[in-house]
Design a protein around this nucleic acid. Structure first.
Length: 487
RNA sequence: GCGCCCGUAGCUCAGCUGGAUAGAGCACCAGACUUCGAAUCUGGGGGUCGGAGGUUCAACUCCUUCCGGGCGCGCCA
């Protein structure tokens, strides 16, 4: 108890060896983020903060998929907007291109930068130019979306940089694996499930993923000679290992579920088993309003953007609610509920607990006039109080809950489950609210502030302070504000 | 067909990595405001933890199998 008060780092873990790399978001730079991306972003960010808090050296990484066919589609879509910006009537966006309005600014930027000089060039010439511009602008947009959630990465790692001329890491990685005997030329059985139209049985370079626990071996080179996404992702993970990370965490969306085994197999092969990869799959988010599914957005083309949601309900609600669920369970996110100020809404409930504590401090000056207003001074002051006078069973229950905090964090960190923090905070707030009300009603001797016993008041304020500190600490890890008042 | 995830109270979900009578919110019923913010709290009813086997002194938790739902399943990322 005294430790909670005196130790500003209560719950922190000891510094540990080894560096952890958390890769999250990694949304394709082809448009604005949607709420599914947002969940992965919040999850990854909170997990990274949790690991930092428990003593790990953490790098937050974003892998930019800027090399595949989808960015060429992006470029062609942007080129259409460019011609539109020059005054052409482009009509409906053709099937296969991105229809969203968000590419209009890219077209306009290209028009003002290049005039009509791109229009007459052959695609081979304009495509790299348009592509680079579009990717840059999309990444700016994504970074803006992330900033609205207070999410920032240490490293933005470009897939394209892996295949640069003269420094082709993908080729290096393939050579590396080939030298180990992990690559062979062979054929794959046709895929099960829904038929693939242009299936063609051919001999190809296959990674021996089955030797490392995967179900089938995986192709690395397409028939046109370019690398598969998987090939560059192996190089991506090898790069992490080469940069000194032995603890790798990937946060993927639900649609990447089938990708886990092959990626873990690849990491095993490429690091000789010296690195571990944990892949956290973040399940879908169902956006609701009062229980009804939310309509699609015009701006994005076909989905509700993350920014629209954040703008509507606020950063704290988005962050907390996305962490108030196990990552591998589908999440219902109700836009109406998360801004309610009631017990239905855990965000509010926990924040209110924190605010209520501060409310008690404000009122307490009538009994303890020299109670410092500043947080660390107040902690220091209260840590010298007669804490041994906290003897009521309800108080001891609360103290036990506080004592659980470090162990809870440790468990959350080792299992990579930040949602445990959110649930713990909810429980702590609940116990605190209950004790508060008891003091106000049926058991007046439990009131935190005793007008005739300044000593006891100090001890109890110490307890309140401990609750406030732990709530603030946990909320900080989740990236949610801990307000002093909420009137 | 295969892989991964989910299945716990009417509804939405926790369950501390096997440990004591399975918890919370909503909803329903009954209560508490001359209170340190009632934006809160107290009590009650309600569950064969999807089914069936197995491992164990002990299973919501681990294994097998079936049922139901979601996601994914060559050179898309």
């Amino acid at each position: 108890m005294r430790a909670v008060l005196t130790d500003a780092a209560y719950g922190r873990g000891p510094a540990r060896d080894g560096a952890v790399n958390v890769e999250y978001v990694s949304a394709n730079p082809t448009g604005p983020m949607h709420v599914g991306h947002g969940r992965g972003a919040v999850f990854g960010d909170a997990l990274a903060s949790l690991l930092v808090f428990t003593g790990h050296a953490v790098t937050r990484e974003y892998y930019i998929n800027d090399a595949g066919a989808q960015v060429d589609v992006l470029a062609r879509s942007a080129f259409l907007r460019y011609r539109e910006a020059l005054g052409e009537v482009i009509g409906d966006i053709p099937e296969g291109l991105y229809p969203g309005d968000y590419l209009k600014p890219v077209g306009q930027a290209l028009a003002s930068e290049w005039g009509d000089r791109l229009r007459s060039k052959p695609e081979a010439e304009w495509l790299p130019i348009v592509r680079a511009k579009a990717i840059a602008m999309m990444m700016d947009e994504i970074k803006g979306d992330l900033a609205a959630l207070n999410i920032h990465h240490d490293v933005f790692f470009s897939e394209r940089s892996l295949i640069e001329d003269g420094n082709n890491k993908v080729a290096e990685t393939i050579d590396f694996l080939r030298a180990k005997g992990d690559i062979y030329e062979g054929r794959l059985p046709p895929p099960k499930g829904k038929p693939v139209e242009d299936y063609e049985d051919r001999e190809q370079s296959l990674f021996r993923a089955t030797a490392y626990g995967d179900d089938v071996d995986r192709p690395l080179i397409k028939s046109d000679g370019s690398y598969t996404y998987f090939a560059s992702d192996i190089a991506n993970h090898k790069s992490k290992f080469d940069r000194g990370f032995a603890d790798l965490i990937d946060v993927f969306g639900a649609d990447h579920g089938g990708y886990v085994k092959r990626m873990q197999a690849a990491v095993k092969a490429v690091t000789a088993g010296k690195a571990t990869l944990d892949v956290k799959i973040v399940q879908l988010v169902r956006l609701l309003r009062n229980g009804e599914p939310v309509k699609m957005s015009k701006r994005s083309g076909d989905f509700v953007t993350l920014r629209e949601v954040v703008d509507e309900v606020g950063r704290d609600a988005v962050r907390f609610m996305m962490l108030y669920r196990k990552n591998d369970a589908v999440l219902d996110f109700d836009l109406a509920k998360v801004i309610e100020q009631s017990r239905d809404n855990p965000v509010f409930y926990v924040q209110y607990g924190h605010a209520r504590g501060h409310s008690i401090f404000r009122r307490a000056r009538e009994v303890v006039p020299d109670l410092p207003a500043e947080d660390s001074a107040r902690r220091e002051y209260l840590s010298r109080g007669p804490l041994e006078r906290l003897t009521e069973p309800e108080e001891l229950d609360l103290l036990r809950r506080l004592a659980l905090y470090p162990r809870m964090l440790e468990g959350a960190a080792t299992t990579h489950e930040p949602h445990r923090i959110a649930f713990y905070l909810y429980d702590l707030a609940s116990e605190f609210h209950a004790l508060w009300t008891k003091g106000g009603t049926e058991l007046p001797h439990l009131r935190f502030i005793s007008d005739h016993d300044a000593s006891l008041t100090k001890a109890r304020l110490g307890m309140v302070q401990a609750v406030v500190s732990v709530l603030a600490s946990g909320l900080a890890i989740l990236g949610v504000h801990a307000p002093d008042e909420m009137r």
